[in-house]
Amino acid sequence: MATEAHGEGLTFHPMDQFIVKPLFRDVAPGTCVPADGITEGCLKWYEPTNATLWMGIAILCIIGLFVLGTRGRAIIPSRLQSIAELGYGFVHKMIEDVTGKDGLKFFPYVFTLFCFIVFSNFLGLIPGALTTTSHVAVTGILAVAVFLTVTIVGFVKNGVHFLELFWVKSAPLALRPVLALIELISYFVRPVSHSVRLAGNMMAGHAVIKVFAAFAPLILISGVGIAVTPLSILAIVAMYALEILVAFIQAYVFTILTCVYLRDALHPSH
C-alpha cells in the first residue's frame, strides 16, 4: 500500500505535455491501436487538435501585433507598433547582412518562419500549452521547406553553376572530390540538423521543467520534501528563465540559418 501511495504521489510524465490530441472529443481506449489494425478512433488529418489551437493562437498574436498594432500608422509609434517595427527591422537587417540585398525578396517568407517560430516558442511557455515547435513533424516541414526553397532557387538562379557550392575551388585539386563528398553530405544533413535543433531545444527544456515539477509535491508525501520541494521550485524558476532565452535564441538561430542557406542559393561560389 505504501509503495502504491508513493507511486501515485510522484508521477513522472514529462512527455505528456507534447501529446497531440483531438480538441473536441476523447479518443476512447482501444479504438486506436494501429498495430492491431484498429484505426477508427485515431486522429484524422483534418481534425482540429490542440496543435491547431496553439497555432491559431499564434496567428491571432501575429495579427494582434503586426496588423492591429500598426493600425495607427503613426510617425511616432505606439508601444505595440514599436515592437512590430523592431521585429521587422530585426529580420530585415538580418537578411540584408547575411544574404545580401537580393535576398530581400525572400523577406516575407523568412519573416513568416521567424514569426511562427518565435510566437510558438513563447506561447509554449504558458503552463498547459502545447509547444508546436517541439514536434519534429512541424520543424521538419519548416526545415524541408527551407531546403527545397534553397535548392530550387539555387538551380533556377545559377543553373549548373549551383553545383560549384560543392566544388571547393580554394582547396588543392586532389582534395576537391573528397571535400565535394563531404559538402554534399552536409548539404543533405542540413534539414535534419536545422529541424532537430529547434525541436530538441524546445522539447528538452520543457521536459526538464516537468521533471522538476514532478518532484515539487514531494513535501506532501515524505519528510525529504522539506528540502526537495523548495529546490525543485527554484529549479523550475531557473529553467523557465533559461527557456525564455532559448525560445528567442532558437527562433533567431533557425532564421539566421535560413538566411545563410539562402545566401548559398544566391551566391553559390565560395
Binding site: M55, A58, V67, A137
Partner: peptide
C-alpha cells in the same frame, strides 16, 4: 515520445501548412 507518434504527423503537417499560409498572407 509523442514527437515520434507518426499517426499525428498528417494532422500536424496539415494544420502547420494552413497556419503558415495564413501567416504568410497576413504578413505579405
Amino acid at each position: 515520445m509523442p514527437q515520434l507518434d507518426f499517426a499525428t504527423f498528417p494532422n500536424q503537417i496539415f494544420w502547420l501548412a494552413v497556419a503558415l499560409v495564413i501567416i504568410y498572407l497576413i504578413l505579405s
